[in-house]
Amino acid sequence: MSVTKLAYYPGCPSDATAMEQDMSTKAVFEKLGVELVEVEDWNCCGAAEVEDPELVYALNARNLAIAEKEGLDIVTPCSICYYNLERSNQALKADEGLRAKVKGIDSSLDYNGKIKAKHVLDVFVNDIGLEELSSKISKKLNLKIAPYYGCYISRPPETGFDDPDDPDTMDKLIELMGGEIVPFSQMKTLCCGGPLMMTRSDIAFDMAMKILDTAKSAGADCIALACPLCGMMLDGKQADIEKALHVEIDMPVVYITQLLGLALGIDANELGLNKNVVDTKDILGKVV
């Protein structure tokens, strides 16, 4: 296997709303024999709220520089963190002036463009590879799954690592684990509404509802995703959406790392499957 050690960037929600994602990521990599070294004293990537690109570059130059010292590529389970890290990486790599400017702020921001930032999904499917994974998978997911990719896995094109309109990295992984993909193409990369949660929850709820509803009508047992913000919206806020829109959804939402963990035979609690807000018991019953 080509990957044995990676720098790990957990992202801010990792010890709060998305702790199950953090737990499952760590458990899966351990099971796969990939060592994760947490980026020492990492700082926030800027999320979607820091809009000034150069501020984002500066923030992430620090994270990248720390990993670079270790000589490790960074992996993160969060799509926004991935986007911010990798676009900073590309901008800094390409622009010497920018590098100098950022370095001028503080020497700890001295990043030389020697590493890459990666999303866990990319690492699983494209670096470790399906073949390798299949040799380690011990359980079958007897599940109908709606794979939800959200925004930053495949957009914008410079950082996206899959088709912007109809990505399939996660589909491939799910199929490998025995899961069945429900028809979901048009929802895969539609924004979950998360960025407007705090300021226009009406819109955000409608948008999330569209995704949940499509998954439900397609007969999905659960939605699989790969971003804590999407998780917060679709799982954390699902009850609020039900209440606001007077509907009943009850759609389990799990991180792809959790599903992979299950397929690899890792204990459900170790994967934080008891932390997902919408109950995941029915899912667990279908993993054999």
């Binding site: 088709d163 912007p164 309109d165 109809d166 193409s185 048009q186």
Partner: peptide, 8 residues
């Protein structure tokens, strides 16, 4: 051709 044209 972009997949957004008809999603297959």
């Amino acid at each position: 051709i972009a997949k957004s044209y008809g999603f297959g």
